[in-house]
Design a protein around this nucleic acid. Structure first.
Length: 282
DNA sequence: TCCCAGGCAAGGC
DNA sequence: GCCTTGCATGGG
């Protein structure tokens, strides 16, 4: 396959004939909660106080942003996803899943925003998660020059009361966010980088509201750890529908990591997106 | 009315 | 260590 070109300008990134890039697949596959689809078909995605607008026209994709370097890394543009897809396709279901979600890329999201966002995600559905996080931004975050609201800084989050957090619709997760915001004052994100998956997971699980699954999401979406496999209710359905049964729920993640190895994180996202494809209203 | 959603913490054993 | 239970909220 011919490899496309990436051109960085001052205020935009231009992809030409660039394989495995679809704004819809990337943003609607469940890894990120702050984005919108615009009336002209373009997408806007937000990260911390930044935003990028993605316009797709045939062979050309234009990513308009005032922070080109940030979103170059954010969209994981250095990685060749055709290799990953090729390796995963030997597994029967993966052939279909990677065909369906061939434009997926695992984003390099901000670690702090990922921690808070996925605490919100626990036992929740995507539509509600998006609404809660949006209300958090509007109520606690700064309004930017572009007119949108930034994700609240840690300092801003720490100032919010439990009652205020509960008004966003967090339910019992309000206490998780409240306590973890305080705990993050003395938490080293840098230390996670050099840890094994199990060490890093254990460290993340010291945060209130973070368990095994949320920790794996943080490792995958915030630290781009490829050797983890977040197991939620959708993945359990995938497991029982397409794979061998016999593992207890809390071992399904281990089974998939043994199966997919270094490509586990990617495999998870293809399968999650594939499993949910007829359920876009969640 | 019950079930479900990108589960987790706490308590019992 | 492994199980069970309660949990806020809104949509189907």
């Amino acid at each position: 396959m011919k490899k496309g070109t990436v051109t960085k300008k001052d205020d935009r990134i231009i992809l030409t004939n660039f394989p495995n890039f679809s704004a819809q697949d990337i943003l609607e596959c469940g890894q990120v909660f702050r984005y919108s689809k615009n009336s002209d078909g373009s997408y806007t995605v937000y990260s911390l106080d930044k935003r990028a607008d993605v316009f797709e026209n045939g062979e050309t994709v234009e990513i308009a942003t005032c922070d080109v370097d940030y979103f170059y890394r954010y969209f994981d543009l250095d990685r060749d996803y055709s290799v990953i897809i090729s390796e995963l396709s030997q597994f029967p279901v993966m052939q279909q899943a990677t065909t369906y979600g061939k434009g997926i890329r695992i984003l390099n999201q901000d670690l702090y925003e990922t921690v808070i966002s996925f605490i919100v995600s626990a036992n929740n559905n995507i539509k509600r998660i998006q609404g809660i996080i949006e209300r958090m931004c509007v109520s606690l975050g700064d309004k930017t020059e572009k007119g949108h609201y930034a994700f609240p800084t840690l300092a801003q989050l720490q100032e919010a009361s439990i009652e205020q957090l509960r008004e966003f619709g967090l339910g019992y997760r309000a206490e998780y966010i409240y306590k973890t915001a305080k705990m993050l004052k003395d938490f080293s994100f840098e230390a996670l980088q050099d840890m094994s998956p199990n060490e890093a997971r254990k460290r993340l699980c010291t945060l209130y509201g973070v368990g095994a699954k949320v920790a794996d999401c943080i490792l995958l979406f915030g630290l781009h750890r490829e050797d983890v496999f977040p197991c939620d209710t959708w993945i359990k359905k995938v497991y029982h529908e397409y794979f061998e049964s016999g593992h207890k729920d809390n071992r399904i993640s281990d089974f998939f990591v043994e199966t997919f190895g270094a490509n586990s994180g990617y495999a998870q996202q293809y399968l999650f997106y594939f499993q949910r494809k007829y359920r876009q209203n969640d």
